[in-house]
Simulated assay, not measured.
Amino acid sequence: MNQVKTAELEERIYQDYATVAGIIVLKNGQLQYENYFNSCTKNSRIHIYSVTKSILSILIGIAMDKGYLKSCNQKVLDFFPDYTVKRKENAIQNITLGNLLTMTAPYKYKYFVPYIKYFKSSDSVRFTLDLLGGKRQIGKFRYTPVIGPDILSGILTRAAGRTVLDFASEYLFSPLGITVEKSIVFQSKEEQIAFNSSKEISGWVSDPAGVNTGGWGLTMAPSDMAKIGQLYLDGGVWNGRQILPSEWIKESTEVQSKWRNLSYGYLWWIIDEKEHAYAALGDGGNVIYVNERKNLVAAVTSLFAPRAKDRIALIREHIEPMFENG
C-alpha cells in the first residue's frame, strides 16, 4: 500500500473514527496494514464487547466437534436439571441451543433490560434463565447484547466440565498463539468501569460462580482478532491443524435469522451474502471482518465511546478498495 493511500486512510481515521485503538488488515493471508492509535501498541488488550459472542460461537462449534455437545437442537433446560421453572411455561421448555445462537429465544422483559440486577447477580446463568421464555414467540429475532449468551456459556461450562476460558485456552487460544491470562471477577462498579477503559488487562470476565461472560467481557489485541478471522477464512485450519470444522464455519456464517434488513448467523452478523462477508461486531467499534470472496480479513479494536461511527463502513468504503488488486 503506497504512502499516499496510507496517509488518506489515517486522516480519515483521525477525523471520523477517533477512538480506534488498532487496525490489522490481511489479504491472501499476508499482512497488508497494521497501525495503532490513541497511545495503543500491538500489546494493548482492549475490551471487545460483543465480539465475545462470536468467540463463544466458535467454542460451541468446537464443543460439538469434540462430542461435548450433540446438536443445536438440544433443549436448554436439559443442561440444567437442577433448575426449577418458576411457573408452568411451554416456551422455556422448548428453547434450544440454536435459538440462543441465532438470537431467536424469547425473554420475559419487554423493553428495559434489568442490567443493574444482572451486574449485581452472583450467578448470571440462573439470573438469565429466570428471564428466559415468557409469552413471546420462539423463532423471532430478539437481540440480547448482554443478557442471554451467558446461558450458552453456562451450558459449555457444564458440558465440558471446566470454565469457558480453560476450554478456549486449550482448543482455540493456545493453538492460535493467543494469550488470555485470567478470569476476572469484579469486586465493585469502579473495577468494571476501569476494565472497560483499560488498554492493558488480559482476561475474560467471569461471574462469582465461575462462569465466563457470553456476550461481552473478553479482551484482545487486533492481532488476536485477525487470527480468528484468518482461521475462518481458511476453513478452520491453522498451521495444518483442523481447529474448527469447516461445516460449522459455513453454517454459522450463513443467514439463520433476520431482523429488518439485518442478517444473523450463529452469533455472527452477515454483511454481504454475495461476497460471503460476515463480521463479529462489538460495541464502541470493535470488529472482526471476513470477506471470503476478496480473501480479506480486517480487525479493529476501539476505545469505548457511545454511538461510535460504523466501522463496517470504514472497512467496506475505505479499507477494502485499497486492496482490490492485491
Results as ranks from 00 to 15, higher is better:
Thr19Lys: 14
Thr19Gly: 11
Thr19Pro: 03
Ala21Val: 05
Ala21Trp: 01
Ile23Leu: 12
Ile23Asp: 05
Ile24Cys: 11
Leu26Thr: 11
Leu26Arg: 08
Asn28Gln: 15
Asn28Trp: 06
Asn28Met: 12
Gln32Trp: 07
Tyr33Gly: 05
Tyr36Asn: 11
Asn38Gln: 15
Thr41Met: 06
Asn43Lys: 15
Asn43Leu: 15
Asn43Ala: 15
Ser44Ile: 02
Arg45Cys: 02
His47Phe: 01
Ile48Thr: 15
Tyr49Thr: 07
Tyr49Leu: 11
Tyr49Arg: 11
Tyr49Glu: 13
Tyr49Asn: 13
Lys53Val: 04
Ser54Met: 07
Leu56His: 04
Ser57Cys: 03
Ile58Val: 15
Ile58Tyr: 06
Leu59Thr: 07
Tyr68Val: 05
Leu69Gln: 02
Ser71Cys: 05
Cys72Lys: 14
Asn73Ile: 05
Lys75Gly: 01
Leu77Ala: 06
Phe79Arg: 00
Phe79Gly: 07
Pro81Ala: 11
Asp82Met: 04
Tyr83Ala: 07
Thr84Ala: 15
Val85His: 00
Val85Pro: 03
Lys88Arg: 12
Glu89Tyr: 01
Glu89Phe: 00
Ala91Met: 09
Ala91Tyr: 01
Ile92Asn: 05
Thr96Leu: 05
Asn99Gln: 08
Leu100Asp: 01
Leu100Gln: 09
Leu100Arg: 00
Leu101Phe: 01
Leu101Cys: 07
Thr102Glu: 09
Thr104Ala: 06
Ala105Gln: 14
Pro106Asn: 10
Pro106Thr: 10
Lys108Leu: 13
Tyr111Met: 11
Tyr111Gly: 12
Phe112Asp: 14
Val113Lys: 10
Val113Asn: 08
Val113His: 04
Ile116Pro: 01
Tyr118Cys: 09
Lys120Ile: 05
Ser121Leu: 09
Asp123Met: 06
Asp123Asn: 14
Arg126His: 10
Phe127Asp: 03
Phe127Trp: 04
Thr128Ala: 15
Leu129Val: 05
Leu129Cys: 06
Leu129Phe: 02
Asp130Phe: 01
Asp130Gly: 10
Leu131Gly: 03
Leu132Met: 14
Lys135Trp: 05
Gln137Thr: 15
Ile138Gln: 10
